[in-house]
Simulated scan of single mutants.
Amino acid sequence: MSWALLLALCALLLLAVQLLRFLRGDGDLTLLWAEWRGRRPEWELTDMVVWVTGASSGIGEELAYQLSKLGVSLVLSARRENELERVKRRCLEISNLKGKDILVLPLDLTDTSSHEVATKAVLQEFGRIDILVNNSGIAQRSLCADTSLDVYKKLIDLNYLGTVSLTKCVLPHMIERKQGKILTVNSLLGIMCLPLSIGYCASKYALRVFFNSLRTELATYPGITVSNICPGPVQTNIVKNSLTEEVTKYVGNDGDQSHKMATSRCVRLMLISMANDLQEVWISHQPFLLVTYLWQYMPTLAFWISGKLGKKRMKNFKSGVDADSSYFKFFKKKHD
């Protein structure tokens, strides 16, 4: 057998292995490689000061639990102080942290005038901010024709402007130290487009572009990393708390969550991204991950597919059926 043929067979085998990993994977190929061969969060993130917004539930709450086990100092922010205290108590129960290692800092991200004061409070308590995790946000489920403009304003104020404002308050401190990590929990809907969530998609698109652009401005500070974390469907209460046609109306139920990724797995992949300073990661089971690749690299085909699936999504929504899960029965499974 010639060397050329052997190399060709090896290349085909490698391609087949990568394709199999992708079809069975729950993250983009760069992230999966980092999980396999990259740096471990247990090595890289200990003894850091991490500020997590939206820490009272969902991804933010799970992130607090997993970070506490790594021995970091935590700042927990959200609007509901009682829920933050609950998360703090749980962190202390499952880790070696002491009460002084966790600061509960209530914060309304839409009240941008409070962000500078909050930042100073963190610096006064711990002296530094090593990692800022922008996790706060709200989703939307309603048709554009039925939706009040106030809903879109709230989505932009909370998901985009509030996050930008807090980042701007923390950034000068990181520039002064010439180091730090800024992670923003975006969404696969910051890459693709779907009906019923166009205001949410727009706010996440804006976030993605802002932080990708910010990374270019910080090129002279290689010690500061900016990461966009883009999860797909995750088992949280984000659908339940989604806005509908009016800012005072919410979906009120979680729908079918069996096709969604376990929150613990999503957060573990986020920590791997954090430890390896990945610039953008996509976290999701199939077929959402494949559709994201299509949106990124074959947008014309993605528009056609999303148009077909979007009709079914809107039909489900109008019929009171879960908007997403019913047409993914083939992929549907329970995740621990």
Rank of each mutant, 00 (worst) to 15 (best):
S2P: 06
W3S: 13
L6D: 00
C10T: 14
C10Q: 14
L13E: 13
L14C: 10
L19G: 03
L23R: 04
R24C: 15
G27A: 09
G27P: 08
L31Q: 01
R37P: 10
R37H: 06
R40Y: 04
R40M: 06
W43Y: 10
V49M: 05
V52D: 01
A55R: 08
S56N: 07
G60F: 09
A64K: 06
Y65P: 03
L67P: 10
L70T: 09
G71S: 01
L74W: 12
A78D: 12
R79S: 01
N82F: 07
L84E: 11
R86G: 08
R86M: 03
R89E: 14
K98N: 14
P106L: 05
P106K: 03
L107P: 00
D108L: 07
D111A: 13
T112E: 10
S114R: 12
H115P: 08
K120P: 00
K120S: 11
V122L: 11
D130T: 02
V133R: 00
N134G: 09
N135R: 07
I138P: 05
I138M: 06
S142A: 15
L143V: 15
L143R: 15
L143Y: 11
A145K: 09
S148R: 13
L149P: 01
L149S: 12
V151A: 03
V151F: 07
K153P: 00
L155H: 10
L155M: 13
L161H: 09
L161A: 09
V164Y: 06
S165R: 06
V170D: 00
L171Y: 05
P172A: 03
P172K: 05
P172Y: 06
M174P: 03
I175M: 13
I175W: 04
R177D: 04
G180C: 03
I182L: 09
L183G: 00
L183Y: 05
L194P: 00
S197K: 11
I198E: 11
A202Y: 00
A202R: 10
A202T: 13
K204V: 07
A206K: 02
R208L: 13
S213I: 04
I224P: 00
T225F: 11
V226N: 03
N228I: 14
P231R: 02
I238G: 01
S242T: 07
S242N: 02
E245H: 12
V251N: 06
V251G: 05
N253F: 14
H259P: 00
R265H: 11
R265A: 15
V267S: 03
V267A: 05
R268P: 01
M270G: 07
M270A: 02
L271I: 10
S273W: 06
A275E: 02
D277H: 08
S284Y: 04
F288P: 00
L290N: 02
V291E: 13
Y293N: 07
Q296F: 08
A302M: 05
A302R: 00
F303I: 15
F303Y: 15
W304D: 12
W304S: 14
I305R: 01
K308F: 14
G310M: 01
K311E: 08
K312T: 09
F317Y: 14
F317M: 01
V321E: 13
D322Q: 03
A323N: 03
D324Q: 07
D324M: 08
D324H: 08
F331G: 03
K333A: 07
H335I: 05
D336S: 13
